[in-house]
Write a protein that binds this DNA or RNA. Structure first.
Length: 435
RNA sequence: GUGGAUGUAGCUCAGUGGUAGAGCCCCGGAUUGUGGCUCCGGUGGUCGUGGGUUCGAUCCCCAUCAUCCACCCCA
């Protein structure tokens, strides 16, 4: 079978690892996004929105040429003029680019956030998709540990709001300054080279690409050797140590629990000093729900003035999965109808449609659905019930003749009643307690 | 990229080498203008796709695509 034939015969479906968000799920997302938006406003962070596509070089230069993300996970293609473009695999690089390009970093500090889709060509799995969504938070121009602490407090407040705080763990580490990190890296590589025979295949590969990540290995055969490896914490420069100690002291004072994980190494090259991760054990192997750190060198690396920066990103799919798993989405997050209007015949149906408009005009908070598509009276009432509405408003010949509506209580044991259409809004407002 | 499991109705799943079933959903009826419960009836499937073996394949074999789980990676 030719490729063309295969394409034409095949049902068209979504790209692997890229999901549709359907009506039963969208309320969860709206709930989460609303929580995030108000939280950011409460901390004085401003939203930015960047394009989904950037020049490939932006990611290669920021994330690191030899990381897995850049080497084999990016959606990269040529634009019609031959430029190499890439669907963003993460948001920080774009955000830095945007902030630099528009002078947001010129002698000022910034607290920014964004959200949107990211793209990585990985094998899909629970909590890991090729198009996934992140909320990113980035701050610029602030070098002290106070802003590191603020970001962690902000994220902790979000977990608290969502009811997740007791289900996630904060892991902390410091990578030291870029210089200290580079020196430690050399020490570590030297150590591993002495124990080459103990390294598994993956780790040998990482010896040249990202030796720090070997520390993170799950291979039990390597555990003893890794335990004996030189510790990052012992190789911190004095300033980084001070920075880290100030951060933990602030977290202690704020009552935020954490675990210092000397093996916590973020995968992206641009991190230095503080790195942290919020993890959960409730999601299987993709347990990192939020992660970030300091990247003081990145702005300069991308051609800007040296600018301290810290940020983090949350994985929205993972957080929503967690909220679902733990049944933490409140019922109010799924909005239900107040009224379902229906008419017995064509004339009454048209009247119902118009009455719906009148009521929405008078009571903006009212949630009203008008039956469309005809059908028997009985089937229309069934639909009213299924809609979840609290009341059904029935219109028929009698109601049209006397200018009334029949109000049927769908959720209460209460006799239906007749109300005049004059002043109906006021009567319903009282009945439903809706403004 | 590697390993394993699974693809049958819109959904959740039975099933057999002789071209298919249940429950839920949906539609209609029992109830001339009244939902939820009950009863009766009905719509709906190229058994993921392509090929092979066979008189005959949804079932056996191969390939492919998709989903899930783990590795890897990471949010």
């Amino acid at each position: 079978m030719s490729k063309e034939q295969a394409l034409s015969d095949k049902k068209i479906q979504a790209i692997r690892g890229m999901n549709d968000l359907l009506p039963d799920q969208s309320p969860y997302w709206q709930y989460f996004e609303a929580q995030v938006q108000t939280l950011m406003q409460r901390y004085g962070y401003a939203e930015v929105r960047m394009p989904i596509v950037e020049q490939t070089a932006l990611f290669a230069r920021s994330i690191g040429e030899v990381t897995d993300i850049v080497e084999k996970e990016m959606y990269t293609f040529d634009d019609r003029n031959g430029d190499s473009l890439t669907l963003r695999p993460e948001g920080t690089a774009s955000c830095v680019r945007a902030a630099m390009q528009h002078g947001l970093l010129h002698n000022q500090t910034q607290r920014l956030w964004y959200q949107g889709p990211m793209f990585r060509h990985e094998r899909p799995q629970k909590g890991r998709y090729r198009q996934f969504h992140q909320v990113g938070v980035e701050t610029f121009g602030l070098e002290g540990p106070d802003i590191d602490a603020e970001l962690i407090l902000l994220s902790a407040r979000l977990w608290k709001q969502l009811g997740l705080l007791e289900h996630v763990t904060l892991e902390l580490n410091s990578l030291g300054s870029l210089e200290a990190r580079a020196a430690y890296r050399d020490t570590l590589v030297a150590y591993f080279e002495q124990h080459l025979d103990l390294l598994d295949e993956d780790s040998r590969r990482r010896l040249t690409s990202n030796p720090l990540r070997i520390l993170d290995s799950k291979n039990p055969d390597m555990a003893a050797m890794l335990d004996a490896a030189p510790q990052l914490m012992d190789h911190l420069d004095a300033e980084s140590r001070e920075h880290f100690e100030a951060l933990t002291a602030t977290l202690d004072a704020a009552g935020i629990g954490y675990v210092i994980n000397p093996r916590l190494v973020r995968g992206l090259d641009y991190y230095s000093r503080t790195v942290f991760e919020w993890t959960t054990s409730a999601l299987g192997s993709q347990g990192t729900v939020c992660a970030g750190g300091r990247y003081d060198g990145l702005v300069e690396q991308l051609g800007g003035k040296p600018t301290p920066a810290v940020g983090f990103a949350m994985g929205i799919e993972r957080l929503i999965l967690l909220l679902e798993t733990l049944d933490l989405v409140p019922d109010e997050a799924t909005p239900s109808l107040d009224l379902y209007l229906l008419g017995m015949d064509a004339a009454a149906s048209r009247e119902a449609l118009l009455l719906g408009e009148t009521l929405r005009e008078a009571l903006p908070a009212l949630r009203v659905q008008v039956h469309c598509g005809g059908g028997s009276f009985k089937s229309q009432i069934k639909k009213a019930d299924k809609s979840g509405a609290r009341l059904a408003l029935l219109l028929g010949e009698n109601e049209l003749a006397e200018g009334s509506v029949t109000v049927k209580f769908l959720r209460d044991e209460r006799e239906q009643c007749s109300l005049p259409r004059d002043g109906l809004a006021a009567a319903l407002s009282e009945l439903l307690n809706v403004a």
